[in-house]
């Protein structure tokens, strides 16, 4: 009992240490990236009329010491929720956290809608294509989905914006309305971006689920269940779907990275005021401290989401729990 507990704690501790190393490594990397700028950070952000005020500004921006110290200072701020400032040299500052508070929920909503819709559509499609594997209609669906999964989402977005947004006028081609302002309008503005991001994902998820379902259908316990006289529906949903959904969950977590990247571009196309738009503004306004915080936030979110899915898989599949213990 105690042994088991210690073992669990070590496994947890090791995993936690790994995550911590990755997070510190990636934020450190981003911080060091600023050293590669062809312009000095000092030149960009420090405007001064006398040496004393210059020194004060340098100290405030942590440019007065080794960049490694600068990183740890930044990390300490970041952990406490201070994401730094937009610095307009000589013309004041604006905290990044205010922008994040406005932009992050918008992006999270977009990503959430996309994941939920992709999974809701791909599960029945995956079951159907696995159940009907080898038939003509299944082949048509599978080839079609493969083709769709390869079309970049920004191309779908531009086509949808042009066709459904401008030519047909069914949905607003750009803009964003918050859910608290007008719920119907909110979903109308989100429809095209969500569709553009979801279609390639639906295709990818369906393929993954289909492959796993076909493998599970060959297992002995399925033959056993069928010989017991269980209905096809019950076998498919209770005996086959559950073990087959693990790869789907893992790939949903892995796809999060692509989705976040994709969302950056899609937000630009549809003028949605999310993280992508903020990052673009930071790049073009040469706000590299802000950029560092945005990207660090995305990396942290991405890693934590993957850990979360890892834990979730333990709940869905008892076998994975066993394997981890062993």
């Amino acid at each position: 009992m105690i042994n088991e507990l210690i073992m669990k704690l070590t496994i947890f501790g090791r995993r936690f240490a790994q995550v911590l190393i990755v997070l510190i490594g990636s934020t450190f990397l981003l911080s060091m990236l600023l050293q590669l700028l062809p312009v000095g950070l000092e030149e960009l952000y420090v405007v001064s009329f006398d040496e004393a005020s210059r020194q004060i500004q340098l100290k405030r921006l942590r440019l007065d010491r080794n960049p490694v110290f600068g990183y740890f200072g930044w990390l300490w701020d970041f952990v406490r929720g201070d994401f730094g400032q937009y610095i307009y040299a000589g013309a004041g500052e604006k905290p990044v956290s205010g922008q994040i508070a406005a932009a992050l929920p918008v992006s999270l909503r977009l990503v959430l809608y996309v994941q939920v819709i992709s999974i809701l559509v791909s599960v029945p499609l995956g079951i159907y294509t696995a159940y009907r594997a080898g038939r003509k209609i299944e082949k048509v669906i599978s080839y079609g989905l493969f083709t769709l999964s390869a079309i970049p989402n920004f191309i779908l977005a531009l086509l949808f914006a042009g066709f459904f947004g401008v030519t047909l006028g069914w949905f607003p081609p750009l803009g964003y309305v918050g859910p608290s302002e007008d719920l119907v309008e909110h979903f109308r503005t989100m429809a095209l971006p969500v569709l553009a991001l979801a279609i390639p994902l639906i295709a990818a998820y369906t393929r993954i689920l289909r492959t796993d379902m076909i493998a599970s259908l060959r297992e002995d316990y399925v033959t056993m269940a069928a010989s017991k006289g269980l209905s096809n529906r019950r076998i498919l949903f209770r005996h086959v779907l559950r073990p087959s959904s693990i790869t789907l969950l893992t790939s949903a977590a892995l796809n999060m990275g692509g989705l976040i990247g994709g969302a950056l571009v899609i937000e630009q196309i549809f003028s949605i005021p999310g993280m992508g738009t903020e990052i673009a503004i930071a790049i073009f306004g040469r706000q590299f401290f802000a950029l560092q915080s945005y990207i660090a936030l995305i990396a942290v979110g991405y890693v934590l989401f993957n850990v979360l899915v890892d834990l979730l898989i333990g709940f869905v599949d008892p076998r994975a729990r066993e394997r981890r213990r062993a």
Partner: peptide
Amino acid sequence: SFNILLSIPNLV
């Protein structure tokens, strides 16, 4: 190192 690089979404 690979894990660190992969922890940042590739487009980002």
